[in-house]
Amino acid sequence: MIAVVTILCAFPLGLFLRSHLAANLAYAVAYLWAFVFQGVYLTRMWVGGDDSAFPKDADTIPVMYGVVCAGLFGVGFGLVAVGHLVGARRRARTPAHA
């Protein structure tokens, strides 16, 4: 879920929003919504007996889940930055309409 949000939202937000800060904030809000939604979904599955996302032992911390989520968050900010760079170059080449 968070990978889909990252792929679908990060680059276009950087491309179409003039403010880099606004693009980063919009991406962070979309990512964090998806993160919470995904976390609730996976927790419900875990409570039902599925241990494919989280370990069976409740005392074990799912470190790899956190690493992957943090990595996707960082990749998203990179995509926002690339989108912002491409958008700024496109706006600089296009003459302003009066």
Rank of each mutant, 00 (worst) to 15 (best):
T60Y: 10
L85G: 05
G87F: 12
V40W: 10
A10W: 00
D50Q: 12
G74H: 05
F77G: 02
D57P: 14
G66V: 12
Y27A: 01
F35H: 03
A96M: 12
V40Q: 02
P12I: 04
G48P: 06
V67P: 10
G83V: 07
S19A: 02
M1R: 11
A30R: 07
F37S: 11
A92W: 04
C9A: 14
L72V: 10
F77A: 03
W46E: 15
T94M: 11
R18M: 04
V86M: 09
F54P: 02
G74R: 07
V4I: 13
T60Q: 14
V63W: 14
A53N: 14
F77S: 02
V67M: 12
L17Y: 03
A23K: 00
D59F: 14
T43L: 07
A98I: 07
G87I: 04
A3G: 10
Y31S: 05
R90C: 06
D59Q: 15
L72G: 06
G78Y: 02
V67D: 13
Y27Q: 00
V75E: 01
L13I: 05
G87R: 11
V68A: 13
G49N: 12
C9R: 11
T94L: 13
Y41N: 11
T43P: 00
R18L: 06
T60P: 06
L79G: 01
F77R: 07
G78W: 05
F35W: 04
V36T: 13
L79A: 11
G87K: 07
